[in-house]
Design a binder for these strands. Structure first.
Length: 265
DNA sequence: GCCCAGGGAATCG
DNA sequence: CGATTCCATGGG
């Protein structure tokens, strides 16, 4: 285990990890987490402007936390929108994580018509059953591995009706019917259509995968919480001028809505 | 017991 | 096209 310390201004480890973009973590205490991504594990701590990463591979997490992007610039895109300016003040320390593409795809397939607490449980069982053992826990199961499973194999993870969707995704990614590296190079709408060929991937899941797995900032996933935000705060629609901060805006609005409704109390 | 959750597929008009 | 209904599961 190496330890590296990164300087980040206007950052919140709590909000970044707990805002619903990622599921494989345990909170140790305020501003300290154990987190897993693909086949990497880290113990993460925030102390002021320091992000302390203990991991075999701290460099993975430097990329993961998108440390080379200037978020102040992205947040400046909120100027002139009263509600977004409030949201920015309230939880503007969120960063859009650069997650593994396959892990994001599989995870958000499992998220449909489900709640975050239960999603975490399903993914945890999925990893401990079919993920390779790594230091500190388990890797995320590879699509190669999952493509060899059947519905009975997945029963123990208790994913419900989503198990067949998960199998379909692994199959199509493995045989390159949906080539994740090609999707990465596609125009947004083409990328979205490609992902939607997978059973269990509709508009919302595709937008989540594109935002969190492909870092497409034009994505704007709309779930039940975002529907409320749009209805209550943006009856005339959101500004089209957000451009490269659209995805970030969505995530901050989503998180703030949930905090305000006492989800985390 | 009911309702809800980072929805989507299948069906029907 | 849009509107319904069904899909498993567990927490509140």
């Amino acid at each position: 285990m190496k330890e590296k310390i990164y300087k980040i201004k206007n950052f919140s480890l709590n909000d970044t990890i707990e805002c619903g973009q990622v599921f494989r973590f345990t909170k140790i205490k305020d501003n300290e987490f154990n987190l897993y991504s693909k086949d990497n594990y880290a113990n993460l701590k925030q102390d002021g402007e320091n992000l302390i990463v203990k991991s075999k591979n701290p460099d993975y997490f430097e990329d993961y936390f998108d440390l080379k992007t200037d978020y102040n610039k992205l947040l400046k895109g909120f100027d002139g929108d009263e509600y977004l300016e409030k949201a920015r003040k309230y939880c503007g320390g969120i960063r859009i994580l650069r997650q593994d593409k396959w892990e994001a795809l599989a995870s958000f397939i499992l998220s449909s018509n489900n709640n975050i607490k239960r999603i975490k449980g399903i993914i945890e069982r999925f990893c401990s059953l079919y993920g390779e053992e790594i230091e500190g826990g388990y890797a995320f199961p590879t699509y190669d591995m999952v493509s060899k499973l059947n519905e009975d194999d997945l029963k123990p993870i208790r994913a419900g009706f989503r198990d067949k969707y998960l199998l379909d995704s692994a199959k199509k990614v493995k045989n390159k019917e949906v080539d994740l590296e090609e999707v990465d190079n596609m125009e947004f709408l083409d990328a979205k259509e490609s992902l939607k060929q997978i059973k269990g991937v509709g508009d919302k899941v595709a937008e989540c995968v594109l935002l969190f797995g492909f870092h497409r900032m034009e994505a704007f996933p709309i779930d039940v919480w975002m529907k409320k935000v749009l209805k209550e705060k943006y009856p005339n629609g959101l500004s089209e001028q957000l451009n490269s901060s659209r995805g970030l805006a969505q995530q901050i609005l989503y998180h703030m809505q949930r905090i305000e409704e006492g989800v985390y109390k």
